[in-house]
């Protein structure tokens, strides 16, 4: 659906990373973990295209006064990387934005009787909070959050509040372990008893490593991809990712915006 949304709050949660809460229509409550929105940052022609953002959280504000209507909202967690996100970060409460969403195919919550291992790199945590919120209702959940520095480790307190056991790793050692988040994941897998599913979102190198680990250990793994996209509805074909059997002779491109952004990692073609 397409709707006009009013900003309820927009705050920098870590240097360069922002969290925005915006009003949503009632029907937005149907959003599932892993879905995304396309945001028109301004009505002008630069920036021209909408920007895709994962849905960080959805909820409803209880009315303060009796008789007032509860206000559904959603949140985005975003990093300022260019002109569009810089403009977004300069917006304030009561400013309005044109939103398309919820879009795409989200995470499969899978079976409850297994451990859920969530891996997030930097702003890749954005679609994983709503996922964790759903998963903790049914299963034990562990989060592995990685980044270059402590500034890239976002909203860990929120995950902890859900009852998620959190591990952090930074490349410079400024928070948690020094190194890659995938090393912490591997150690957990070494002692894992019983079944598990991995859920991951982050830089492509991290996803590549997680997918390879999942394949080697025969653990189901879902990844949420990013893609350059113009439309978000499957028309522009800008955001495609190669499927496992893709080759020039047997084309198999998957649309990140409609078939994804979440895929089973073994559906996709990864770097060798």
């Amino acid at each position: 659906m397409q709707f006009t949304s009013m900003i309820l709050s927009n705050a920098e949660v870590s240097p360069g990373y922002w969290r925005m809460r915006m009003t949503a229509p009632q029907q937005f409550a149907s959003a599932t973990p892993g879905q995304f929105v396309m945001v028109r940052v301004s009505g002008a022609i630069d920036p021209l295209l909408r920007r895709p953002f994962g849905i960080f959280d959805v909820g409803v504000h209880a009315p303060v006064q009796s008789g007032a209507v509860p206000q559904p909202y959603f949140e985005m967690l975003y990093r300022v990387v260019g002109k569009g996100t810089a403009m977004l970060s300069a917006l304030h409460e009561t400013d309005v934005l044109d939103i398309l969403g919820p879009l795409g195919t989200g995470f499969n919550l899978g079976s409850p009787d297994e451990e859920k291992l969530i891996v997030g790199g930097g702003v890749g945590l954005a679609p994983l909070y709503l996922l964790a919120r759903e998963l903790v209702k049914r299963s034990p959940v562990r989060l592995f959050a990685g980044g270059r520095t402590r500034d890239d480790i976002l909203c860990i307190t929120e995950f902890e509040r859900l009852g998620v056991e959190c591990y952090t790793a930074t490349e410079d050692g400024s928070l948690g372990e020094c190194g890659l988040v995938t090393e912490a994941l591997l150690r957990r897998l070494d002692v894992l008893k019983g079944r598990a599913t991995i859920y991951a979102c982050g830089p492509h190198g991290m996803l590549n490593a997680v997918a390879a680990t999942a394949e080697a250990r025969k653990i189901p793994c879902q990844v949420s991809l990013e893609g350059y996209m113009a439309c978000g509805v499957g028309a522009c074909l800008g955001c495609v990712a190669p499927g496992r059997g893709h080759s020039a002779e047997t084309p198999d491109f998957r649309c990140v915006c409609t078939e994804g952004p979440v895929f089973e990692s073994n559906e996709l073609k990864w770097r060798d």
Binding site: I45, D46, P47, L48, L49, G227, Y228, M229, A230, C236, L237, G238, C239, V240, A241, H246, A248, P251, D252, F253
Partner: peptide
């Protein structure tokens, strides 16, 4: 037809 590899799209002013 498979089409081209990605990135396939980039925005420029206007």
């Amino acid at each position: 037809r498979a089409g081209n590899p990605t990135p396939r799209i980039v925005e420029t002013p206007g």
